[in-house]
């Protein structure tokens, strides 16, 4: 794009002058949430360098250090600022690594959902007719069974078919697959609704008259115009996917304890709650809640800015 001249400002400048950035600058809640989200994201991405210990490395773990409380309680060890879990792993390190696993699964699952959902939504909305009726009926039926239920059942069946050992070896990929397959209808519905609105516009007619193929019109012309609802729904879906992953892990259908996500940390700590070691379960729990809360609040803000009536009707 070398033809950009002084009359059309650069992409970065256009972004900086957009309404999105303008309203972001005026909304301190959104700024605060983004800051916290970026902190968690950074901590998770840089876990191998930031974490004092590697929880996957058995040689660094000493069972004698198990169930040490966080630093502000008597009997703590300064080496372990947030205490240790029942196996003697440093809780801060396991949380950083766990947030990494949770975020990978969250983003991966949302990407898969978006891939399936956007394709289905585009096809249904653009082609219409019987294909539309069939695909949307399918989405309706799947939505009528709650997404969590679908995820639990699919997870349980996969575990029953392949056995626990194989399941925990491929847990990350299986969870992405399960959560991705369970929640695509949300995307399909949203995309279809905006495709229906776009389809009757003149630029689509123009493209059709010029003889472009359907595929090109769908992906190059209509899809870019449906991006803002996709964007909005994606934030909410990331929060949902992280919660679903945690729920599956808590039920023992997710990440194994050797490679914990936030959900499996909560699960493994729950057994020690009655003996007074609340930190093993509640600190990862707090991290999970903060993560989901800031993503939800960012989603709320984005929805208000981009399309206030998206979730109506």
């Amino acid at each position: 794009m070398t033809t950009t001249t002084a009359t059309t400002p650069s992409r970065w400048k256009r972004f900086r002058n957009s309404y999105l950035v303008y309203s972001f600058k005026r909304d301190w809640i959104a700024q605060f949430c983004l800051a916290i989200f970026l902190c968690i994201l950074l901590g998770a991405v840089c876990a191998p360098w930031l974490a004092p210990m590697n929880p996957y490395d058995l040689t660094q773990i000493n069972i004698l250090n198990s169930e040490l409380p966080p630093i502000w309680i008597d009997g703590a060890d300064a080496l372990f600022p947030l205490g240790t879990d029942a196996q003697g792993r440093d809780l801060l390190s396991t949380i950083l690594y766990g947030a990494r696993v949770s975020l990978i699964i969250g983003f991966g699952a949302v990407m898969l959902q978006a891939l399936i959902g956007v394709t289905v939504g585009l096809l249904a909305g653009y082609l219409g007719g019987r294909i539309d009726a069939f695909l949307m009926r399918l989405a309706d039926i799947q939505l009528s069974f709650s997404t969590l239920m679908v995820a639990i059942i699919v997870g349980a069946l996969i575990k029953a078919v392949f056995g626990g050992a194989v399941y925990s070896d491929y847990a990350v990929w299986l969870l992405v697959l399960i959560i991705g397959l369970a929640e695509w209808p949300q995307y399909a519905r949203t995309v279809r609704a905006s495709v229906l609105a776009e389809r009757s516009k003149e630029y689509v007619d123009a493209a059709r008259v010029m003889g472009y193929r359907d595929r090109r019109i769908m992906f190059r012309h209509i899809l870019p115009n449906t991006l803002s609802p996709i964007f909005v729904i994606s934030t909410v879906q990331i929060a949902n996917a992280i919660i679903s992953e945690a729920a599956l892990s808590f039920l023992g259908l997710g990440m194994p304890e050797t490679q914990p996500s936030l959900g499996s940390l909560i699960k493994s700590g729950f057994d020690y709650l009655q003996s007074g070691s609340w930190w093993i379960t509640l600190i990862p729990g707090a991290v999970l809640v903060v993560l989901v809360l800031v993503v939800n609040l960012l989603g709320d803000w984005l929805r208000d800015v981009m399309n206030p009536r998206l979730y109506k009707g």
């Binding site: 729920a247 729990g285 809640v289």
Partner: peptide, 9 residues
């Protein structure tokens, strides 16, 4: 934003 099992815990 709080998962149901965490509320329970």
């Amino acid at each position: 934003s709080i998962p149901v099992f965490l509320t329970a815990i």
